[in-house]
Design a protein around this nucleic acid. Sequence first.
DNA 1: TCAAAAGTGTTGGAGTTACACCCATGA
DNA 2: TCATGGGTGTAACTCCAACACTTTTGA
Lengths: 224, 224
Amino acid sequence: MKDQIRLTVDSVVFGYQNAELFILLIKRKYAPYKNDWALPGGFVLYNESLEDAVYRELKEETGIEVNYLEQLYTFGNLDRDPRGHVVSTSYFALVSPKSFTLNPTTDAVEAEWFSTKDLPKLAFDHEKIITLAMKRLQSKVIYEPLGFELLNKKFPFSDLEKLYTTILGRSIDRRNFRKKFLSLNVLDELKEKVSLGAGRPANLFKFNPERYKKLKEEGIIFEI
Amino acid sequence: MKDQIRLTVDSVVFGYQNAELFILLIKRKYAPYKNDWALPGGFVLYNESLEDAVYRELKEETGIEVNYLEQLYTFGNLDRDPRGHVVSTSYFALVSPKSFTLNPTTDAVEAEWFSTKDLPKLAFDHEKIITLAMKRLQSKVIYEPLGFELLNKKFPFSDLEKLYTTILGRSIDRRNFRKKFLSLNVLDELKEKVSLGAGRPANLFKFNPERYKKLKEEGIIFEI
DNA sequence: TCAAAAGTGTTGGAGTTACACCCATGA
DNA sequence: TCATGGGTGTAACTCCAACACTTTTGA
């Protein structure tokens, strides 16, 4: 077991609530970095694919089901893990609001959502991984319709706008955003309305993945 | 050694000559896939970083020096290598024309450039890796000035244009391309001219990496 | 009736595309 | 002087950014 390269996976799981982005972290039970917060993940088993390892670890450590998963980067610096030569393939994942509340299934393991604006000190090089994941989310959300994975199936337009504002970290012109998004022709306007506290009730929309797929095949590119 | 995940690196090395893109392949000396063509690469050693492994394997197998290196993707399917559970992190690299001719240093190992339009049957999942690398090159060349890594330091504008035509696989309007590229303000026009066979001699240009870096820091984005 | 959020059009400017002829050289 | 590739400008159009008031509801 010694003098052997070992392979881990780590996942940056994003959740979204009330115009805030969150990342799922777990508290480490063992050394190294005992009691520090870290990304969910762990060693890949023999004859286990990378994605299987990600799903297994997420289930074991957090009990969460993700909506979207994508490989991020593989870190292989020699100084990244005090236990020796440990290479980690990182993933980034998105969860829908209904998976946002954590069931405290997996006893003993502490898992918690942290606002991206208020992250604790992290184990290993996990801060670096998170930084990369956030950049990737930002750059990806403008040319692929990922955002919907973080929202409910049906959502008012303002949710989408707030989500983009949050992810991109800048304000967006409501009229232009709506115009542009609707012109992409991948949203279905529903007959339903929803009233969120004060103000005029909002129309609900739904992302149409089939239409998106078809447009993509035709070479039409999504771009916000 | 058995029942142990092993880690390899594989590199897709691109070269460019006469309006054609080439990929560097080696002929496998041992099973599996003995005598098939494959991407240069091999097992990562204990206490060796991924990039070091890439450079080492490229040197051992091809004797080549690359100009640009970037991680591509990590493949971890269980069926990708008949030898067992072998995970491979792939890289993509660019070489300048002066490194394009192969010195037959590393005896016994056969390395050869293949046109991307005429690739042989490949070992493992290397065809898949190459497909991904080509997509990455295409999408990246339009928002990062990678192309220069495939050209001589000093080059006539037509070289740049032909390179983009080749990589993107479509024709480009000469006037618009030149206008746009020059307006990015990262090329220095030299006083030198070069005459390539027939026709009016062309002015030489040089990429200015410092200027590009400065513009990038100011938030100006390169985009062709 | 007031507060709060949803919904909606227009205009100017920037940037992109489309397009064809002259220039400098070597053979 | 001819063949070859290099170098250049303009006009139409499309796309993007900027900008503020009306509508609908609940309290």
